[in-house]
Amino acid sequence: MPPEGALLESRSMRDSVMGRIDALDKVKALRLLPDGVHITTEGVARYFEIHREAVHSVVKRHRDELHANGMITLNGSDLQDFEMANLATSADGAPVSYPQGRAHLRLFTRRAVLNIAMLLRDSDIARCVRTYLLDAEDDLRKGYANLDRRVTDVETCLGGVGVALQELGPVLHRMSYRLDSLDRRLDATNQVVAAISNRLCQMSEDINRVDARVDDVVHQLRDLRRGRKRR
């Protein structure tokens, strides 16, 4: 597992785990504004248990990176509309108080807050978030390594099966040839049996005809004997 400081120093490493916003609530509940999406600078400071100036300092040093991960600054009519929609209560039911006449309002998404967690050096909460991220990535890598081993084992087994199939190839070919030969012989035998059956049918008809002729002869002989007796 890489050291916790790697996230502080490497933007590419931070980008690689930026999707793990679940790490925030695993360490501490993050209370968003009523829109369910954003949190103010003050809210970020409360989450990390630091002064808001520490948040401003991180923003100054990494403004582009934070903008890329959802940080926005509202002013003018956009600010007024947002304050009207989120002025009543915060996500946890507590009243929201905005300074009157502010010129702008900086807001952070969960992704931007996670980004700050990987940039803050002097916050125990931020350290816990970084540790959670690194542990989760380490578990993921171990899972991938275990999967790779299983895939390798399967490939090894399949390789053995391939060799066995290659060795069985000639045997299967010979068996196929013999089965074809048996099929041909069986067909020939069936033809002979069919011919014998036909011949037997013909013989049966011949026998029936002979029987009929014999019966005729017998009847004729009986008739002759009866004629003689009458004389």
Results as ranks from 00 to 15, higher is better:
L107C: 06
A85W: 09
R111C: 09
E167K: 15
L33E: 11
L200Y: 10
R178F: 08
M71S: 00
R127Q: 02
L182T: 03
R130L: 09
Y177L: 09
Q220D: 09
T73S: 01
E83K: 15
E83I: 15
E53P: 01
C128G: 04
L147Y: 13
C128F: 05
K142L: 14
V17M: 08
H62C: 09
A188W: 03
M203L: 15
G43S: 01
R141T: 10
M1C: 07
V154W: 11
G19W: 08
F48R: 02
F108S: 02
R14N: 05
L119D: 09
S77L: 13
M84D: 07
A117M: 06
D180P: 00
L74H: 14
I116C: 06
Y47N: 07
Q166I: 00
R230N: 06
M203E: 14
S77W: 04
S12M: 09
V96F: 00
V129Q: 06
K229G: 01
L179S: 06
R111G: 12
G169H: 12
V113F: 05
D148C: 06
E53Y: 09
N208A: 14
M203T: 11
V55W: 07
F82W: 02
G93P: 04
V55R: 08
E167M: 06
A126F: 05
A112K: 01
N198I: 08
T131L: 12
L134P: 01
L168W: 12
H56S: 14
L87N: 10
E65I: 04
H173A: 15
C201H: 13
S197M: 11
P99W: 02
R209V: 10
M203V: 09
L224I: 01
C128Q: 14
D78I: 00
R14F: 06
N69W: 06
R52D: 11
G143P: 04
A68M: 00
V210T: 14
E83D: 02
S181V: 05
A29M: 08
Y132S: 02
K26M: 12
